[in-house]
């Protein structure tokens, strides 16, 4: 039985709520219980945005420190802030221009915790296809490509199709594909 806890971190305007909707829809399609928590109101005005998502048999929508299986971070600073949520042996995907910039002490600490740490310049990849706002989907596509998450290409793609608005569907699928290919390579 799948039990997966996902944290999505970033700042207001990066499409974190949408990214979280993709995984909620995925849970629904897989017949799993879905629980999540969102940030609204004043905290949305340029502040840190954190979305919790739990798939499987849970009761509370909140993930506690040291419990998340997967962390998606869309902004460097928010990665540092949200790493505490990740469990030993968890995996994180970080949208980062330059992976060399990431703090080496923290990186080696994560290694000790057997955390799968992947950075990828999703901004750049999204800009390349001309849709800077699809960074969120590119990073998710990338994570599927790496094969490090317990969900497969077809399921996530179909969830993405279900939650996309008609006029954005084509762009979203393209962003997903680009990310996926980068993750595989």
């Amino acid at each position: 039985m799948i039990k997966t806890q996902i944290i999505l971190a970033g700042i207001g305007g990066q499409g974190i709520l949408f990214a979280s909707r993709i995984f909620s829809e995925l849970g629904l399609k897989l017949g799993l219980n879905v629980l999540g928590s969102e940030t609204h109101g004043m905290s949305q005005r340029g502040g840190s945005v954190l979305s919790h998502l739990k798939l499987g048999n849970f009761h509370s929508p909140l993930i506690h420190t040291g419990a998340a299986d997967i962390l998606y971070s869309f902004a460097e600073e928010e990665t540092y802030r949200s790493l505490k949520f990740l469990r030993n042996g968890g995996v994180c995907f970080v949208n980062l221009e330059n992976s060399k910039r990431f703090d080496p002490a923290i990186l080696s600490h994560l290694k000790g915790k057997k955390v799968g740490f992947r950075t990828f310049d999703a901004n750049e990849a999204a800009a390349q296809i001309g849709f800077a706002r699809s960074t969120n989907i590119v990073l998710i596509g990338y994570s599927v490509g790496t094969g490090l998450i317990p969900f497969v290409y077809d399921d996530i793609k179909s969830a993405l199709e279900s939650v996309s608005r008609k006029k954005e569907l084509e762009v979203n699928l393209k962003a997903f594909e680009i990310g996926f290919l980068k993750g595989k390579s």
Partner: peptide
């Protein structure tokens, strides 16, 4: 919790992201 990690992050002295 992982106090060692939290200390490492604290030492980065990240700017507070206020609304």
């Amino acid at each position: 919790s992982d106090p060692e990690l939290e200390k490492l992050v604290e030492d980065l002295d990240l700017p507070v992201r206020r609304p």
